[in-house]
């Protein structure tokens, strides 16, 4: 990216942050002890895979771990592979990953269906603040895999970051100003603790929207009406934070897409 462009984005986002900080209403301030007052940054840097350059003119393909890569010889950038070649390449990638991560178990999603926890799920929504449930893997159990090399501290940092994001969503959810409401209405007025937002039922068909809606579509609809603000684009930090808060209130509830 051109350095000047980066600079102007940084300036803009700083302005946005200041702007938002000014509009936090006394309502949010009154909640100071429960809601951290950090404000969504609209242009936090998105990290991309750092793919090594090709060594002999082929295309380098990297796994989702951001580390394991192979080069497909003779494949020009932007050129599609045949189905058979694609299968061969993915197998080769997985083989390499297994070699580099001995002892790591690759689990098939279908074998891992959670037991029906429906009855437990009907219970009270869980508060946003909770620490990581499963204990971090210890070196005594398995060795050498990526996740085992993280420490308790790493997990705590991640959890804190996640909770912060959820708390930002909570602030927005409770603030007619941050939602851009022109009529002084915020989500919590009708959804205390995000009750009855049912994020676990998406995607589902919404007749009035005449399409299969994702949670974010429904949030946007509610921002437009009844809140009477401007809809947010799907990658808007405020929309992402709202989604995070709403989902966090339903921890433990089984996914049940399509439910009405």
């Amino acid at each position: 990216m051109h350095p000047n462009r980066l600079l102007s984005i940084l300036t803009l986002s700083a302005a946005a942050i200041i702007g938002l900080a000014f509009t936090i209403p006394f309502h949010a301030r009154a909640q100071q002890s429960t809601v951290p007052q950090s404000v969504p940054t609209s242009s936090e840097q998105v990290v991309h895979h750092n793919v090594p350059a090709s060594t002999d003119g082929g295309t380098v393909i990297m796994l989702c771990d951001g580390k394991t890569s192979i080069e497909v010889k003779g494949l020009k950038a932007g050129e599609p592979m045949s189905h058979a070649q694609a299968i061969a390449v993915t197998h080769e990638l997985m083989d390499k990953w297994r070699r580099e991560n001995p002892g790591e178990k690759w689990e098939m999603a279908q074998e891992n269906q959670p037991e029906s926890a429906a009855s437990a799920a009907a219970n009270a929504p869980v508060s946003a603040a909770h620490s990581a449930k499963s204990p971090p893997p210890t070196r005594k159990i398995q060795q050498g895999d990526t996740y085992a090399s993280f420490t308790d501290r790493d997990y705590k940092i991640w959890q804190t970051e996640t909770d912060k994001f959820v708390a930002e969503g909570k602030t927005i959810f409770h603030s007619s100003k941050l939602l851009g409401s022109t009529i002084g209405v915020s989500c919590d007025m009708c959804h205390p603790d995000a009750a009855n937002t049912h994020p676990e039922t998406y995607p589902k068909y919404q007749v009035q929207l005449q399409r299969v809606a994702l949670l974010r579509d429904m949030i946007d609809w509610c921002i437009e009406n009844p809140v009477k603000g401007k809809t947010l684009s799907p990658d808007d930090e405020k929309l992402r934070a709202l989604e995070a808060y709403i989902l966090a209130q339903r921890k433990g509830v089984p996914l049940d897409y399509g439910k009405h």
Partner: peptide, 11 residues
């Protein structure tokens, strides 16, 4: 602030 706190059902 007092009013807004009370007005928030889940506050």
């Amino acid at each position: 602030e007092r009013m807004n706190t009370v007005a928030g059902l889940d506050n």
